[in-house]
Every structure is written in structure tokens, then in C-alpha cells.
Amino acid sequence: MKLLLATSAAALALLGSGCATSVNTVSRSEPQATPSYVADQRVITDSSLGRKVAIVSVNEAKVSGDLLKIQVTLENRSTKPQAFTYKFDWIATDGMELSAPTGGWKQIQLEGRETRAVAAVATSPKAVDFRLKLREN
């Protein structure tokens, strides 16, 4: 009886997790990169997505002289792959949102426990701020 219960529990756990596989990584123990981190504020309206995908860091750089590039590092907290969409908005000095000809929602899938960065370059030198939106599929 005890064996039956244990087997059932293991089977249920396996069913619950699906064929989950997570990503193992290796990197330099003392990173040489010196990113310019951005102090960020977060608004969580989907707590389910917030639990699954964590925002690890936000950093910025200037490309082509005066264009803002933002990189947001995301981590899948679960061992299951997570597919979601994201979108960057760009904001000018006067607070106005800038139209981006190639903007729009983009799809990304993070494997189990994978950490990956999403990045975007503002196509206007007027862009000084950004907003990243994340949405579960």
C-alpha cells in the first residue's frame, strides 16, 4: 500500500512537471564587463508571470553616438520553458512616447531556469527613457 502511494505520488509529480529540463550555465567567476546599471521601478499586474519570470538587471549604453540601448536580463524561475511577449516603448525628454517604426510585441521563449537578455535600440536620439512590457502568452 505504502509502495503504491509512493509510486502514485512520483507519477503525479512527473505528470505535473511534464518533461521539464533546465539549463546549466558556466561563466567567468569574476566578470570583466562593467555594465551601466539602471535603477528601475516595476509594476506587477500579472503576479503569475511575475513569479515565473524575474527581472535580474537593467543596463544601458549609447550606440551610434547618441542612441539609447537598453538591455534587460530575464530569468525563468521555473524548470519549464516559458514563452511570453515583450515590447519596448521609448520616451522623449518631454515625456512624450516616441513612435517606433519597427517597434511592437516580440516573442521570446526562455528554457527552464535560463537567464537571457532582451535588448532594444531607440531609433531616435530624442529617446531618454524606456518602458519594457512583458505579457504571458
Binding site: V63, S64, G65, L67, K69, P101, T102, G103, G104, K106, A119, A120, V121, T123
Partner: peptide
């Protein structure tokens, strides 16, 4: 849209 976005970002990042 996605192809254009990636290629534009790549071109601008290349300096």
C-alpha cells in the same frame, strides 16, 4: 516587423 527591428538594431550597434 521583427526582422526589420533586429537588423536596424544590429546596424546601429555596429557604429
Amino acid at each position: 516587423n521583427n526582422a526589420a527591428d533586429k537588423l536596424v538594431a544590429s546596424l546601429l550597434e555596429s557604429n
